[in-house]
Design a protein around this nucleic acid. Structure first.
Lengths: 364, 364
DNA sequence: CTGTTAGCGCCTTCAT
DNA sequence: ATGAAGGCGCTAACAG
């Protein structure tokens, strides 16, 4: 009978209008129902409730029934947090990201694919996104969640990979040299070559590049691929045509504007990622430069947005979603204690032809 | 003195060779470093460590320094879980989804946009994805996380909205009638009208529809929009031209085949979502019906695939990401205790013209 | 300024 | 078959 008399704790949340004064189901008392309350309502001890929930032996059939009914009525569900804290095993895998942007969410979909039907739950965590928390977010996130909320984690695009965690960790697209972690990455160098070779085959010779964040391995490899393709075709790289866009829209717009405003602008631009390529498209439009008529643009990543762009973007596709899948499969195997053979996987990239590239105009 | 004598609890994790008796940088002992260990290593009490971490007053400068150093050296980071369990406030907002698919991840990006720089962390949670867990996932997830891991939550496409949680909850694209929850949705009715009006303006009069899942509000509204647009133009709806596609490809193909096989087939079809519209395209191709020559098709959603279709799909766009943003803004305001005025927002949709629509052929 | 004490919600021996 | 007690990692009163 103590259930109806709890005037001490004011409800901070919203009260639903639905009058519940009607039949049986004791108006699911508001807010967090704890095992405590279930026990009280059922007139048994907390531990008995726990046993019922976890299907432990040593509870009479009728007690089980009764408690189960109370649980249903109250809409009780064990707190993930409390349970995690207590148990070593949580049955949850985590995807740790710096931010939720196109790349990481695509990886997330892949991880979800692989986790489906395994009985694991999935948690994606971002410490908040911007700048401040940049340095070492992967270490912090890992420490904060691992072994206390998740059984294992997929690290998306980590800058630091010499992390130490007491559970399995797999990196996707690691950015710090030969990783100390099991990892899944795309073949950046090959991809960049593909993209630039496409432009060269179209007849372009003045090809500029918006590079990525110089401290990241993928950025370096893509730039190297660009240089290799140019060199292989006997074309020289005009340093004035290489600008950094830092893998992000803001800087990329600035870089693109510099690149396209000059008198002797390139006829084609290879961007280190789609976000940068989209920025180029935007700037070109501002400047009245027709794409692909007067300027060809090739991106890298093939994020969903790239196809929605106007014109749709020719880009180098990374099998992002697949990367997430493979990472998750590795992770689950590692959690299961199986020994995984190929701890460092590199997936092939491919060129996706769309509408942002064309042969250069024959000017004079 | 009881700190060094805890032989009862065997470390289940991996043991590193590093003896702790040596010099300075005690090789960051592996795995989960707890406050306990930091305290022991620093020779102070646990609560002192806690105070240092939380910047509480009443700790001598040198102690702060010392403890801080130890924390750095050990790479300690407070467990999100333990902290959440203790505090009422967690500084984390959750996005609860049935699964990580294109729609929900798009919402997620929007939420992330809005959360940036607010100091909140973001957790996206999916109970596993498929079928089994369908019914009531929103209720379960909410109960499991709210007030114990997150301060508030965004529910994506919940089927049930009469949930009771002890914290703010905002629904995005709720599917269960006038929601009892604060909600953000797209203007399905208006969108449907836009799509159908476009067909009418092109000159179509025999316009069919592939409807969605009849138990979902969005489906009902889209159908209503279709009927209203028809009525407004003085066109009557031939019931034989309205078939259910259940929002999914399989059923939609069947429906499309029925619709297009008849002798008196429609000259245009409005589909309740892009997936259905794509099915129509497919069936039309099978049947040798030219789109948009002999048949115009309009979809709803504007998923990336719609632009890749052949021909690319004219469709009604929902501002999905924006919906996530608004939901998050509402949520943060609610958490902050501000009173939000507009608790049920409807965002405008817009028509995206592509290549699957054209005037009807003048047959005879 | 520092340490002790008491839980947050849950699960698990260990008694009864 | 049931309940009491202790503790997961952390914080917030209260002592000293």
């Amino acid at each position: 009978m103590k259930l109806d008399s709890t005037p001490d704790d004011v409800v901070p949340g919203l009260l639903v209008g639905a009058g519940a004064g009607t039949r049986v189901p004791t108006p699911p008392l508001r807010g967090r129902v704890t095992m405590q309350q279930v026990a009280a309502e059922a007139g048994v001890s907390i531990s008995t409730v726990s046993k019922v929930i976890n299907g432990r032996y040593g509870v009479s059939t009728e007690t089980v029934d009764h408690v189960t009914r109370v649980i249903d009525r109250l809409g009780y569900e064990a707190s993930l947090v409390a349970r995690s804290l207590r148990n070593r095993r949580t049955n949850v895998v985590g995807v740790l990201v710096m931010d939720f942007e196109p790349f990481s969410t695509e990886v997330l979909k892949g991880v979800a694919d692989a986790v489906h039907g395994t009985g694991y739950e999935l948690i994606a965590y971002s410490a908040g996104g911007h700048e401040e928390a940049r340095e070492g977010w992967e270490r912090r996130s890992l420490t904060r969640l691992m072994a206390t909320l998740v059984d294992g984690a997929v690290l998306v695009t980590p800058t630091v990979t010499d992390v130490q965690a007491d559970g399995p960790v797999v990196a996707v697209d690691p950015q710090a040299g030969p990783s100390a972690l099991p990892a899944v990455a795309a073949h950046n160098l090959q991809g960049a070559r593909l993209g630039v070779e496409h432009l060269i085959e179209l007849g372009h010779t003045r090809i500029g590049m918006i590079t990525g964040r110089s401290d990241l391995m993928s950025a370096q490899q893509r730039e190297q691929g660009y240089r290799e393709a140019m060199a292989a075709a006997g074309l020289c790289v005009d340093q004035a045509l290489v600008r950094s866009g830092g893998f992000e829209p803001g800087l990329s717009r600035v870089a693109a504007r510099e690149l396209l405003s000059g008198t002797d602008r390139p006829t084609a631009v290879f961007a280190a990622n789609d976000l940068s390529a989209l920025a180029v498209l935007e700037v070109a439009r501002d400047l009245g430069i027709d794409v692909p008529g007067q300027l060809s643009v090739v991106g890298f990543d093939n994020i969903p947005e790239s196809v929605l762009a106007e014109p749709s973007l020719t880009t180098v596709q990374q099998p992002i979603r697949r990367m997430g899948q493979e990472a998750a499969e590795m992770l689950l195997a590692l959690i299961a204690g199986e020994d995984v053979h190929d701890l460092d996987r590199t997936l092939d990239t491919s060129l996706v032809l769309r509408s942002s590239t064309a042969p250069p105009v024959q000017v004079r």
